[in-house]
Design a protein around this nucleic acid. Sequence first.
DNA 1: TTGTAGGCGTTATCAT
DNA 2: ATGATAACGCCTACAA
Lengths: 344, 344
Amino acid sequence: MSKSKRVTIYDIADELGMSASYVSRALNNHPLVRQEIRNRVKKKALQLNYKYNSHAANLRQGSSKTIGVVVPHIDQSFFSGVIAGIEEICFQHNYGLVICQSHESFKQECLAVETLIHQNVACILISVSAETQSYAHLESIKQHNIDLIQFDRCIDKLDSYKVLNDNKETSFNVVNALVEEGYKRIAFLGGPEHLNAFKDRKEGYLKAIKHAGLSIPYNFIVDNVLSKDKAAQIATELLSLKDPPDAFLTVSDHQSLGVLEIANSLGIQVPQQLGIFGFANEAFAEIIQPSLSSVDQKSKEIGERTANLYFKNILNRKDNTPASSRKEIIKCEIIIRKSSRKVK
Amino acid sequence: MSKSKRVTIYDIADELGMSASYVSRALNNHPLVRQEIRNRVKKKALQLNYKYNSHAANLRQGSSKTIGVVVPHIDQSFFSGVIAGIEEICFQHNYGLVICQSHESFKQECLAVETLIHQNVACILISVSAETQSYAHLESIKQHNIDLIQFDRCIDKLDSYKVLNDNKETSFNVVNALVEEGYKRIAFLGGPEHLNAFKDRKEGYLKAIKHAGLSIPYNFIVDNVLSKDKAAQIATELLSLKDPPDAFLTVSDHQSLGVLEIANSLGIQVPQQLGIFGFANEAFAEIIQPSLSSVDQKSKEIGERTANLYFKNILNRKDNTPASSRKEIIKCEIIIRKSSRKVK
DNA sequence: TTGTAGGCGTTATCAT
DNA sequence: ATGATAACGCCTACAA
């Protein structure tokens, strides 16, 4: 295979005895080009194995019909669900998608954002890493005339569209459900409190505890234990107390899993002696024994709404939306499984 | 924020009273530019909020320091592991990564490949969809001077580097392990046979069955049942026979899960009455009860080796490697858990 | 060590 | 309806 030069619209033009600009128009279905000619050009393009060069087009047009997504992990069901939703909408609008993982690292997140800016994406959709506290990198996005939408885990202070779950309400309702089930000493394993999603879940929890008139020891409420291992460690400590919790509300199923494993190893019966309730509705939640109660965050819908926000509200209608309507709330669904149901 | 024009190297050059080409060299750490000047230029770039324009650079250079990956799903632990490995190596070499999902659809796979060609990626790493039988789209990659490496699920007939597991040997060994455990009527739930990974696993199975001198009814061997649901359906049929299988070897943990659920619902004890063994070592395999025996395919290593193949063997050393050495084999690790261990 | 000039492939604008 | 031309931002011979 010779290192032949790339086939361009000029090659097509030459073969067809027309100009490159006309070929370009034909390929792009320009209304001024007759269907018959379009077909002829496209046929020739195929025959010559011509491929469109996005870089050239992007350079010329200064924008790229591409959307960038940055998420902590692509293999958590919440995020892969979101991505599936985004993909679908982008596909409908004929936009490309570049997916980046931060692996919960601030540094990698900055790098990803940097790359996406270099690529001149039209819009960046981001759910920030657990480490992310400052947001100069996000402001830099806007400085480059790239649109920004945050979802799920947002920097509150940063002005941008946001797509969120009704975390506080859901958390409140979950605790109520636990209380109704007879649990009274409900511990809370949270995430980093500087992220709204986790802060809201904690607030909902606190509100419900108050509402139910329960008194919870201060050390039952632990922030920033977002991994299975950290959760397991805290669970070990708490469950070894003379007056241990009789339930855990966690902000992720991975934490729930950590708690469950510790409970098992300590011989504590779930759900009879200990209730467990989490967020995210990971695939494994309904598979394991006992199945884990969890919150379905409607990830695919979040993805769809987030992407649609760009296409419907931002593109064209360059943003004179009042700040107040810049938040979309997606309602969660509470899924009660065995891990929080004492009575059959 | 005004719709200001993008800051370019010309702006930096103007401010600093030098030429754009010199700025370009300074930013790229060209040896002929003194460190002191490099620093000054970079400082000014930062100050002006300059961002590199990849499109312009790619267009100029005709290649993009970007690698494209196409996988069926990003949220299966095998593939996300592979991606993690690839990411790491790309990062070391300062290459970008574009990740695409085919969702097991041939059409979407073609689309992804098309997009990556348009983006002028340096190399495409692909594990084809279950539907993929023809490979014109993959040949098209090579026609565009883009390098191609297949991993895991490969089109055998297509000449390219390949990174594979030792599927046949592993499958053979797994069956032996099942036989040693006392299982005798071992059914096989496979994938689409036109894909080497599944074909090899089947061959290993058949070889081991023969080697052990077992006789297996022909209907115990079923191809192309790659989902949990399909596996469950076949398991229901087989387990309802008067002489049912006493073990299942599957080619994915999702299938194993389907089998397990059916066994549970039929009141069949796993592993006492029915052994189950799968591939992929999904996260849930060790979590559920009984834990699922599976094959760890060393996904991260596959990713690393695949990416390294590009950087070490292809880049620069433009391919005079003999066809024979164009295959890398990664050894699997067999993980025996409860679902296939009769004796304690 | 630094600058000049040209071109990568496309598309928008202007002209015919 | 079709063509010529310039420009997007960068890099790299080549020149000085």
